[in-house]
């Protein structure tokens, strides 16, 4: 396979921006809405997701010559389900708080379209290294997207960013932003409870998508405008040249 220079970098970056699974392809929306109440839960979900994606991509890529075209989908589903079960047991053993917070959504990574989609579309056609890079890019892109959503929801909904409730190995502390509590006394509280509720999840996701659409539209319109201007300029120049030529010839006549 001939490969252009910088393919690995491009392959990694595409999952982050150009083909971001959550914000561009709108895949994996269920956990994105359900597990983004707090930044820690979103980070945990993103990490588990990335681990499953990397493992399944590597195994699918290793087995890509053994699995026949006909039974591809069943084989991939079983591979993914096995890895999800392993990840689930690990979480239950080492991070029980994360396990109880995410609950059934760890199991639901099995039916997450991104994992199956990457296995079908990428890992089944490419070598192990490329699949690994692809999985890393997609996984980190998804995690970053979850973190962005969780940031808005936690800051607006609870007023502060709290660490240490799910990842218990770090000391518990919180950064007050919209709400400040000192020694159990609420000093000020400007948080909007609704953003912790399901409705808030939909609103945050909708607004983020709207901002992305806005930026994209603006870019496209700016480009269209510039192209139009250039065309006009060219037409103007051509007209002027033609006029000058006509002038010349007519001047020559006189």
């Amino acid at each position: 396979m001939s490969r252009e220079k910088g393919y690995t970098k491009k392959n990694f970056l595409k999952g982050l921006i150009a083909e971001n699974p959550l914000f561009v392809s709108i895949l994996g929306t269920c956990p994105a809405l359900a597990t983004t109440k707090s930044i820690e839960a979103a980070l945990g979900m993103g990490l588990l997701f990335t681990v499953v994606l990397i493992c399944s991509n590597i195994l699918v890529s290793l087995l890509r010559k053994l699995i026949s075209e006909e039974i591809r989908t069943p084989a991939y589903i079983v591979i993914i389900a096995t890895f999800v079960t392993m990840v689930k047991m690990m979480t239950n053993a080492f991070l029980p708080e994360l396990y109880s917070t995410l609950g059934v959504f760890i199991s639901l990574i099995v039916v997450n379209c991104i994992v199956l989609g990457r296995a079908e579309a990428y890992a089944s056609k490419n070598n192990v290294f490329d699949s690994l890079i692809d999985a890393l890019g997609m996984g980190i892109g998804y995690t970053v997207a979850l973190l962005i959503m969780a940031f808005f929801r936690e800051v607006l909904g609870s007023g502060m960013i709290t660490f240490g409730t799910i990842f218990t190995f770090i000391p518990k502390f919180s950064i007050p932003i919209l709400k400040c509590v000192k020694d159990g006394v609420v000093i000020y509280d400007y948080s909007i409870q609704m953003f912790q509720n399901p409705a808030g999840a939909f609103i945050v996701f909708g607004l983020i998508l709207a901002v992305i659409a806005f930026v994209k539209n603006r870019k496209a319109e700016l480009k269209a405008y510039q192209e139009k201007q250039e065309k006009l300029k060219k037409a103007e120049a051509a007209r002027l040249a033609a006029a000058a030529k006509a002038n010349e010839t007519s001047g020559g006549d006189k």
Binding site: I26, G200, G206, A210
Partner: peptide
């Protein structure tokens, strides 16, 4: 609004339904 066409406005609608 142009930026809200399609999915964004659908999600906001879903939020109102959730409320």
């Amino acid at each position: 609004p142009k930026a809200f066409k399609g999915l964004p406005i659908a999600l906001i609608t879903a939020a109102i339904m959730a409320i």
